[in-house]
Amino acid sequence: MQAPGPDQLLEMYAAMLRVRLFEERARELYAGGRIPGFIHLSVGQEAVAVGVCAALRRDDYLLSTHRGHGHLIAKGGSLRSLMAELYGKATGCCRGKGGSMHIADASVGYLGANGVLTAGCVLAPGVGLSIQMRKTDQVVVAVFGDGAANRGPFHEGVNLAALWRAPAVFVCENNRWASTTAQAVSTAGGSIAGRAAGYGIPGVTVDGNDVLAVFEACTQAVARARRGEGPSLVEARTIRWLGHYEGDPQLYRGKDEVAEGRSRDPVAHLRQILEERTLLDAADAERVEAAVRDEIDDAVAFAEASPLPDARSAFEDLFAHYPWRD
């Protein structure tokens, strides 16, 4: 495998920062009442989103989760239409019908966040079948949480993808918790990656706070998929810094875990690598950050200025073919 070059590393850094700062901004906006509904943020988990997506092309597919803003950003989706969707505006990527938990951006192969856990795992073999039948060399990645891994569709999806040698990568974003429930008390055997053996596919566990480790594992899995050798399973172990959802009192865990997460900050980690390789100095870092902040300001301004959807649009988009009669 070729190690990422300087440009790619710098791109990854900008992407990590984009996710981090977007999520922090979303948090403020939510607290300020600008964003309706519920939001699940991925602060602390940026290395998974960015490591996975850096191994993908724009035309590859990604099936995401309820904690999906970072995945969409890392896949190259528009911050404007993402932010507008969180606001419930007509200009949002789903015209306000989806919201945080249901963002989707087909233009970058992002086939949806999902309000139903593990749903993507059974869609993945079908996307893989489509890739095979259309004879493209695309790849599909299904991301799911440690909690989601305990639903049946995980097993059905991995088995079918393995049987079909589908060009799929299953990525478990293991942040130790499923809402209030620790992975340790909900998952027999402990390892998600270890399940790969049962399906005869490669399974690896990586440090999900190390973007290069995630990138390397995913690059290998993606290359294998593109070669037509079938799916792989990657378990990325990471730490969620914030609550399960915004507003979560987090009665189920102590502060040390978040402290541990912060001490292994994935963004700072990559920055340190870049500095060590003299690819980035303080002035560069400031420039990158300022540019990302501008992008986010622009997205917020766009969302703020956009109109709410007309109530009538609630009755559009249900079917491709109209008029429909009830």
Partner: peptide, 16 residues
């Protein structure tokens, strides 16, 4: 309710 899924945005949700 109308025969559509429940949309997210407040004015759409209200309409349903």
């Amino acid at each position: 309710g109308p025969n559509v899924p429940i949309p997210f945005s407040p004015p759409l949700e209200a309409a349903c």
